[in-house]
Design a protein around this nucleic acid. Structure first.
Length: 149
DNA sequence: CCCTGATTCGC
DNA sequence: GCGAATCAGG
């Protein structure tokens, strides 16, 4: 059954009158999916629905194959945007080296209170200490000497 | 298990 | 554009 202007009008009226999608569908002789689908397509006002589908976590099955052709070459290097204020231990380490050039290597889950940075003295202009430089730049190192572990 | 609406995706 | 399938909360 096609959506004739009359049907669309009736749908709109019933929808705006607060009838449920299934009730409207029953009246129009279509499924509630058809009603809610059409309503959504018509940009009718979304009626009270607590359903939240926009959770951050990965959505499986629905989007299976991103198929990336250019994998980023530095998997171990964390982004600067990940920067968060570390716990209170910061004060102590600042006393030792207040120049601010401290290792930015993230430790723990950024979404967790115990998240902090390494903050050992950074090695030669790098954002990380010597140990974490070895981890962050492992790809480059391997590229040159094939070992260093 | 029933209801609800929202979103996706093959047609 | 359509709507069944699927998802998701009450």
């Amino acid at each position: 059954m096609a959506w004739t202007p009359e049907r669309i009008e009736e749908l709109t009226q019933l929808w705006n009158a607060g009838h449920s999608a299934s009730a409207i569908g029953k009246k129009l002789g279509v499924s509630k999916n058809a009603v809610v689908g059409k309503a959504h397509r018509l940009n009718l006002p979304a009626r009270p629905s607590p359903i939240r589908r926009d959770s951050k976590p990965a959505q499986p099955a629905r989007k299976p194959a991103p198929v990336l052709k250019t994998p980023p070459p530095m998997p171990a290097a964390p982004a600067k945007e990940e920067r968060r204020r570390p716990p209170m231990v910061r004060v102590q380490q600042q006393q030792e080296k207040s120049t601010g050039r401290r290792c930015q290597w993230p430790i723990g889950d950024p979404a967790t209170p115990d998240f902090h940075f390494c903050e050992a003295p950074a090695a030669g202009g790098k954002p990380y200490c010597a140990e974490h430089c070895a981890v962050a730049y492992v790809v480059k190192s391997r590229d040159r000497s094939s070992e260093a572990a």
